[in-house]
Design a protein around this nucleic acid. Structure first.
Lengths: 199, 199, 199, 199
DNA sequence: GATGAATGAGTCTTCATTCAT
DNA sequence: AATGAATGAAGACTCATTCAT
């Protein structure tokens, strides 16, 4: 049992080191020995926990992605009204991108470069199934525009990725008020009502 | 001694090979010998045209970025009304992302990873100065919401990056009608009128 | 991370291989892979013991130079009469040049080409401080001619370098008797008495 | 005829560039393109004048060595008394080492490193045949000690190499008076009379 | 389980040399 | 004769991975 927790500690240290180094230097510049150094273990030790470098990256990716999923649907309930449910999810995701920036950056890196095996990378939106379901319900009920979920995602969620990058590079940091505004814009851009009004 | 600019054919072949390989494999996995092979020259020949790998990447980045800039402001005139000007620019950029996908991907790769020297990478939005000016004018005239240009960019331009990625990975391809819809959403999300109406 | 000093056997093998190859082929023609081959290790292994090629050369140079210094002043005591002290040192140095030829050649190579960092290369004579001190004392006492130490060195020690080269190239090898003669010539060339007598 | 002189100009420029670069950077660091640059010709042009790099070095070595020989025996006449003849030759050689330092350095570089084919490098002393002859005559006549010419050379000529190096590295420069002293020491060290007197 | 040491495969880069013009 | 362009071969160095302890 002691061993297990010891193991977990090292495992965690390796994951953390990997995320940090990949974020700052990219995948290829993140060498196994640097990871080991940052995690305070010997290089060979990594291979006790992961089969090889690709396996390490994949596992870290999956862990972080799982964490994201939990984060995204915290306090969400399928029974909530569509608009209310969307607000919760959007704000959760915004929270993740803007407060868990390290982890969000890592996901973004992996999703935008050929780092991750295509088999590991989940079809771009599949991990947000609950959101896709919500949108579908919203469209059936009439509150949400008839658009491809890819477009809904592009208009509402994806802008947060840009803000994450700006924050990471210390270029621009959004304030709580601005975030509220942004949420309104996001909702407007997919709400059927606004579409109708502005026609 | 100095790098050659004659023999544009080989120069172009190298640039093209670089873009292609970096897009598909990333910077570090794109070796000089692979570039040479794809361009049908000997590896050493690359060094007649570029000082080293970093110089090659920087030069390609600058070329592509220049091309983007020309593209973005084609047919645009500062004297046009704000909404009209914005539509032209937005559609130009959309065109670039969705039709010149290879080049757009390359820019995106470079902007999102530590591949490019910070000195070469232009401050995130500075290359779109004419668009920033347009927005400022729009805000003075009252037609565009009072928001940080970073937010305006996030809501209107950045979603196109997502669509570019989806297209590249053959996951989703937007139709002309959908693009028109998307433009409307983009404009609504920053138009002061829509903001007022929907309050 | 840091270079290893364990496994003295391999360290020694690398040093020996380096000396041998540099002596026979010069610095630039001595490739890391040839050194590795001669030392029976993989090329990459060298980098566990030395940071890079220059570091390897510098370290070997320093080791050999230290050895020379020990050699030169073996059995020497500052309290000895000048002539006696000089004889001991001169014969030590002659011994080194003519019997430890490999090491002496290596020093000579390094001192005569731009192989060694100026910071590593010790000022030409500074490593022979005890000899310089002896000469100074000799001059104060009147037994040694008033000449720049550079000239004293040129007349007495430097000729040995020539003999070393001749031996190395199998052109001429000095006999013990001849060496004794040579010592006499050396001493005569700096002794104040001979200077006076021959005037 | 015009062509020939043009050729000679380029030939000279190449020789000069080679000497300069080899002196300052060593053989291997002296690349063909650097030589070409310094001589203001295209790299390929070198191959019109020399078969390859080794041939270039060999030819330059031979030229410089010839020059040295002329220099060494200027104003010398076999009919002169031994001591007088020796003084002339010694001072000529000293002149060469200390005033034609660039050329002297080049010879020294080549003689001390494995740069020159053994076939090109003339047996160490053979180029000084006239001096060897003089010494032999001196020994027959009784004015010069019975010693191997290698030892005579080591004691009288070789010290000048050291002074050349010191001058080149700006460490020590000999004055005319000191040079005269040095000549005396040199002569004393091989003169039979001094040997006898000091016994 | 943990690690220090070792290495094969591969990367960027240089350079002497050739060749078409 | 002269050269700009091209390249094959080689060199320094790195790194993911393995293995004996």
């Amino acid at each position: 049992m002691a061993t297990i927790s010891k193991n977990k500690i090292k495992h965690e240290a390796l994951v953390k080191a990997t995320i940090n180094l990949v974020n700052n230097n990219g995948f290829r510049a993140t060498t196994m020995s640097k990871i080991a150094e940052e995690a305070n273990v010997a290089t060979a030790t990594i291979y006790l926990y992961f089969k090889n470098k690709q396996d390490l990256i994949n596992k870290v990716y999956n862990e972080v992605k799982s964490e994201f999923n939990e984060y995204a649907f915290k306090d969400y309930d399928e029974l909530l009204p569509v608009e209310e449910g969307f607000e919760i999810i959007w704000k959760n995701i915004a929270d993740f991108y803007l407060n868990e920036t390290e982890h969000a950056m890592f996901i973004s890196q992996c999703d935008n470069t050929p780092v991750i095996d295509d088999s590991t990378r989940q079809g771009e939106l599949s991990h947000l199934q609950a959101l896709l379901d919500l949108w579908e319900r919203g469209q059936k009920e009439g509150g949400i525009k008839q658009m491809s979920p890819y477009l809904l995602y592009a208009c509402t969620i994806y802008p947060l990725v840009f803000l994450m990058n700006m924050k990471k590079h210390n270029v621009f940091q959004i304030s709580p008020d601005q975030l509220e505004d942004l949420y309104q814009s996001a909702w407007n851009s997919i709400s059927a009502r606004s579409f109708f009004l502005l026609k």
